[in-house]
Computed example of a mutant assay.
Amino acid sequence: MNADLQKYRERIKSVGLKATPQRISVLKVLSETDEHPSAEMLMDKLKNEGSIMSVGTIYNILETFEEKGLILKLHDHNEVMRFDARTGFHVHIFNKKTNQIEDYFDNDLEVLLKDYLKDKLPKDVTLDHLDIALYSQSA
């Protein structure tokens, strides 16, 4: 198994899941795209790489990955579920005209927000994940 596939195998196993060929393929394709695909878009990408799976299998894998924290689930402005393998802090910019989702990374913003919220949240709340979405109408 090449180094890239081994990386995905280890990432899947690190959350207590069995690293099946289907799971490895889904995580690989999702990790190597910037498009934030829907399950159907992901199915087409997998098919182009020679991995043919039913949409139900893909949805089951995506749901399991999201539950285990391997991926993020987003809803575009049409309420279609889209997926992102980048789980660290970043902002999603939704373009309402093109229906594209773009990642925006800003470490200073993350520090600023976490510092601000540290003393503002109720004492029994621990910040696990911070999600920010911006919506654009530019072409």
Rank of each mutant, 00 (worst) to 15 (best):
E79I: 13
L62H: 07
K47L: 08
L117A: 03
P37H: 08
R86E: 15
T57F: 04
R11Y: 05
D128C: 05
V26E: 02
T33Y: 14
H75C: 13
A133Q: 15
T126N: 15
L17C: 00
P37K: 02
S38V: 00
L74S: 03
E32T: 07
K97P: 00
N107C: 04
K7L: 11
M53F: 15
N95H: 14
T87H: 07
K114N: 03
P122Q: 09
S14M: 08
T64M: 11
E66I: 04
H77D: 09
D44I: 01
I132E: 01
V26F: 04
G88K: 15
V111H: 07
S14T: 11
Q100D: 08
Y59V: 08
E32G: 12
I24G: 00
L30P: 07
H75G: 12
L109W: 02
G69T: 14
V80P: 09
S51G: 04
L17D: 02
S138C: 10
E102A: 12
K123R: 10
T126I: 15
I132P: 00
I101D: 00
K28W: 10
K45T: 05
T126Y: 14
Y59F: 06
K97N: 12
K7P: 03
I101T: 08
L5G: 12
E79D: 14
I61C: 02
K73I: 03
D128T: 09
L121I: 10
L17V: 03
N60P: 01
F83L: 03
Q100W: 09
S38Y: 01
F105V: 04
F94E: 06
I93E: 13
L62A: 10
Q137L: 10
S138D: 15
V125C: 08
I61D: 00
E40N: 09
H92V: 12
D124T: 14
H36I: 05
L72Y: 08
D103Q: 13
K118R: 15
A39P: 04
F89L: 04
L27H: 03
R23F: 09
A19V: 08
V91D: 00
H90M: 04
L70M: 07
D128G: 06
K68L: 07
E49H: 10
E102S: 12
L127I: 00
L42G: 06
R23D: 04
L62N: 07
L70W: 01
R9N: 10
D84S: 15
T57L: 07
E63F: 06
L109H: 05
N2L: 12
E63L: 09
